[in-house]
Nucleic acid binder design. Structure first.
Lengths: 224, 224
DNA sequence: TCAATATAGATTGTTGAACAATATATTTCT
DNA sequence: AGAAATATATTGTTCAACAATCTATATTGA
């Protein structure tokens, strides 16, 4: 794993820092982030932190309630369903856009291989990351930075859900093989079958996330 | 036309104000927005304005260059192509999602009718707005707020392009009929034909935007 | 003259303190 | 207990200041 590149202003660094904390489940869903508290915690001023909050709120990771403050987004089942609807539309587009010899296909192949190794090594966290990267690479088949950006936003929110779950462990395990099959179908230009398999993947994944959402962390540290 | 609802904080109001100025072409593409200048112009403090800039940058309307400032996004041909790739994916998804009796269909019908009236009245600006609203309603067929939000982002950028053009006049005129036909096909559940017509619309629209981009405003007030 | 360098000026990045406006918690009253 | 009034805390916003960086100007050297 490469070390994070230290670049940009204090605000940028703080934004990625908080983003990572959110994705890693460092905060509880719906938890309020006090400006003075977080500011002193990160060693930045309140004004700078407010800029960071505005960025993260624009990305859907924080909810900004006027005169009340910034709250950690707490995606519920409706949100998960919404996220998977978005994924269906975008990733179906990716299947249709899949062109032979596209650089993204090579990336997908490599990511499938890596995921297999990590699974065999029992490194579930890496499997999850590689699974995300695989689907991200898949969207890049569309050759649209805007579509990729949109997908990233939705996936960040999904990662936020994962961070709020307890058993993030084997959640991605069953999908290593599915991704491998999906890649092969795309490589061979078997669009219809790829679409069908994608649907199957999304249904299954959505189902497991929704199921895990029932026994989520908010049961422990419940916040209004 | 309804008066703008005065709500939210100064920052929110300033954000929508600047956003409107951007969309209406009040600034030139690539123009630099000085913090002190714009702040005094809007009667807000520099710190508050920086929050606004962060919001608009997240939405792709401004480009934030560290230590250099905020610049008006200047979508070039590559950006327009990218935008239409995104539209194709999302709106094809909308066609597939079109369900009989969906509320969005009723909205589309009303918008088609309004657009026809405005066209007959020669109100091209309204035709443009209604055209946008029509396609926005179409995306709502997907029943995904996230997908709609993504679409809104891309369309805002497209409106930014329009604002930077000279002859924004008849740009939307040919599409009133196309939209009407598209609506009818969706209403009758003729998916394949709707897809074909949608493709035709997007190709034609993209072409005209690209063409207009050649004789755009930046020829007059060129900014590095 | 031209290019490289050094200087001066302007702009952004960030902070801390201050205060008004709003929300939350506490107390008081019936 | 429930409602009203008070007190406290938090957000929204501004201002002034300074460091860091960029930009334009002036200077120097070949």
């Amino acid at each position: 794993m490469l070390a994070d590149i230290e670049q940009g202003s204090l605000a940028s660094k703080a934004a990625t820092e908080i983003r990572n904390m959110l994705i890693e489940g460092h905060f509880g869903p719906g938890e309020k982030l006090s400006e003075v508290q977080v500011a002193s915690q990160l060693g930045i001023s309140r004004n700078t932190l407010r800029e960071v909050f505005r960025i993260l709120a624009s990305q859907g990771l924080l909810i900004h309630v006027p005169n009340r403050g910034a709250f950690v987004a707490a995606p519920d089942e409706a949100a998960v369903i919404d996220i998977y609807r978005t994924r269906r539309v975008i990733q179906r587009g990716a299947v249709h856009a899949a062109a032979l010899g596209h650089p993204a296909l090579a990336r997908m192949q490599a990511l499938v291989a890596d995921a297999g190794n990590m699974r065999d090594g029992g490194n579930w966290q890496a499997v999850g990351t590689l699974n995300m990267d695989f689907h991200r690479a898949m969207v890049e088949l569309c050759d649209s930075s805007r579509l990729s950006a949109c997908f990233d936003l939705v996936m960040a929110e999904l990662r936020l859900v994962f961070g709020q779950l307890i058993d993030t462990g084997h959640l991605h395990e069953p999908y290593v093989e599915l991704n491998a099959s999906l890649y092969k179908l795309l490589l061979e230009g078997r669009t219809a079958e790829a679409l069908s398999l994608l649907d199957h993947y999304l249904v299954q994944s959505e189902r497991s996330v929704l199921a895990a959402l029932h026994r989520r962390r908010s049961d422990q540290k419940a916040v209004t």
